[in-house]
């Protein structure tokens, strides 16, 4: 699967003061822990472990995620918008790569 594609969806017809539900998905394998002889295989597993959303540069939502979040992580979260602006969402995986998506919220 092509890793690191970010899709963001916000509702249409947003008005000032609305609490907007943002939906975001990033394609990522979220590598699962492997067990051998009843013990976890020691290695650096590749999974998204951080996510942060900023609105007009201000952090509005963050996540610390583990391997127990599903492949192709999906989140929906609320943002109260008082002015139009840019929503930026960034993911970082445990191999240090980051993936960003952004969208404009217009009134």
């Amino acid at each position: 699967m092509a890793t690191g594609q970010v899709r963001i969806r916000v509702p249409d017809g947003v008005k000032a003061g609305d609490v907007v539900t943002v939906r975001v998905l990033v394609t990522h394998p979220m590598e699962v822990l492997r067990m051998e002889g009843g013990k976890p295989v020691e290695k650096n597993y590749n999974f998204i472990h951080r996510m942060a959303a900023t609105y007009n540069g201000k952090t509005v939502f963050e996540a610390e995620t583990t391997q127990a979040v599903s492949q192709n992580p999906f989140f929906s979260f609320p943002v109260k918008v008082t002015e139009p602006g840019k929503l930026q969402i960034q993911f970082e995986d445990t191999e240090g790569r980051s993936y960003t998506g952004e969208t404009d919220i217009k009134f």
């Binding site: 939502f61 963050e62 610390e64 995620t65 127990a68 979040v69 609320p78 943002v79 109260k80």
Partner: peptide, 21 residues
Amino acid sequence: LNAKFTLTPESGRLSMATNVR
């Protein structure tokens, strides 16, 4: 622990979703 989320007063209302294993 599947995940930990951080919100702010600007979140407006607690309403969220995700998929877990």
